[in-house]
Nucleic acid binder design. Structure first.
Lengths: 131, 131
DNA sequence: CTTACTGTATTAGGTACCTAGTACAGAGAG
DNA sequence: CTCTCTGTACTAGGTACCTAATACAGTAAG
């Protein structure tokens, strides 16, 4: 699936939530496809099942996943994307954080942009590989 | 000085540390200039003095700040920049995180880059204003 | 039916972080 | 000298997060 970054200050359940959203956005998880059980994914990521359950629960509430109790969890038929406003807001926040650290370490704008392009392609490639 | 983002999962002391580094990188804090006392900055940021002290201590250990005990804290005469390796690593990590969230919310590479450029200019302008 | 899987809920424990309060030593002004 | 500022150190408390262990209800296969 994807990897958990222990050095990332973000909570693990949020990293899982975002990871699933990435997989769906990139087509590595198609609508209707089944996602690993909480126990399986927890074992895969070396993480507690409760942590995975929390991420799945949030994704279900958000309309991204659909639960068939006792059977499994699946990608929703029409996985809900964040509203345009929320998406822009999230992107803006993330961009601000990135720009802040780029400046803090003494990087020029050009370098920062180059690094983003490289990272974007890298992440896409990484997910396509496992699709 | 700068603002603390409560929604940022990064610890406050790290946000302060990074903020000071930004100010120096942008010239808003010149070498030899005095930085606010731990109590003043704590009051300004609505944060506990111990949290500021922790950030200052790290910056001092890193050669960015110089402490004159009983007198105050100053920007080092030659504030140490992160080594090229560390800088590239930090930038790469940050770029990966940014690209990941951009993809997760369904943004194209172009939008992600545009947002970074806007954020970069915004952060620079914000600091220049208070220099 | 039993067995084995699914998601969900609950409780308890540990760690990291932030807060609050207090105390101490060094430097400068009165 | 006293007074006031500086950074530093320590203890105690609370919250968020992750872990661990257990239990329960629903579904499917044997």
């Amino acid at each position: 699936m994807f990897a958990i970054n222990p050095t990332d200050p973000a909570p693990i359940w949020r990293q899982i939530e975002e990871g699933v959203r990435r997989m769906i956005a990139l087509g590595a998880l198609q609508p209707g496809a089944s996602v690993p059980s909480v126990r399986d994914l927890a074992k895969d990521l070396r993480v507690n099942p409760n942590t995975v359950a929390r991420a799945y629960q949030r994704l279900t509430e958000g309309g991204v996943l659909a639960v068939k109790r006792g059977e499994g969890t699946y990608v929703a038929d029409e996985p809900a994307l964040p509203r345009k406003t929320e998406r822009n807001e999230a992107l803006r926040d993330a961009a601000t954080r990135y720009a802040s650290t780029a400046i803090a370490v003494g990087s020029e704008l050009g370098d920062a942009v180059d690094e983003v392009e490289a990272a974007y392609e890298r992440v896409v490639r990484e997910h396509r590989r496992k699709a």
